[in-house]
Amino acid sequence: MKAAAFAYARATSVMNALELLAAHGDRAKVLSGGQSLMPAMNLRLLSPDILVDVGGLAELRGIAVRGNLLVVGALTRHVDLLRSPEVALHASLLRDAVAHVAHPAIRNRGTIGGSLAHADPASELPACVVALGATIVVRGPAGERRIAATEFFKGIYETALSPDELLVAVEVPVAGRGATFFFQEYARRHGDYAVVGLAASAVVAAGRFSDLRLGFFAVGDRPLLAAAAGKLINASVTSALLAEAATALADELDPQEDQQASPAMRRHLATVLLRRCVAALLARSELEAGVTR
């Protein structure tokens, strides 16, 4: 379990990183926190010719509020999201989600940019940025471009990022009045990849959802912004309506089979999550009917 030999370059600036990526194309891999890349290399599932280490780029660090956007640098580590007062105030969904990401040793190194660019369909942060309506900021030889999170994830480990581009930041709209979040995942052990998870962002006013964005993960090849949420917006949520939404959700999902769960189990768990999420966000425990916890 030793990685094949590879070259290593420590980028001195974003520009320098882009030059290196342009020079090596898809034979290069960007090294950020290394928490997914290094195991894959040690298992020889990946054998890049060169690693472009962006770890020293101060310009990719930091969390700041600019206007009505929370701007999170790509090198922001999971532990920083967990502890940041700005995140807690403006996008607490990220904080809640990160507590479920692996273990402290991994959270101390893993970065938001790395997680998003890696695009594991079972990981938490991609679903969060989709639920939050965030924008992914990438830079390439032609300059900077902004990609809506909902357009960014293209499949298992696939994104809208091209090999010569670098993910530099995430822009999250700051939480407004009535904004509320829900995060829960079912994993066999704490810190494992989720069997099914839900990152939800909502605006609740007078006991109704004026907005509801449900970002399911581990239910397909990319995070899924559930259309079924639409049934619950600006409506009086009853058990019957919720059941209708759950049926719509189950129809909408096309989950994969793996060692943890069959597609039927994933559909089932997703509907359980939906009910628990709605009950929690509206603070109406009776909507959980049939739910034991």
Partner: peptide
């Protein structure tokens, strides 16, 4: 006793 085994026994899936 995995969740899959228990949900199956309960007839939930």
């Amino acid at each position: 006793l995995t969740p899959q085994v228990i949900l199956t026994a309960l007839g939930r899936i």
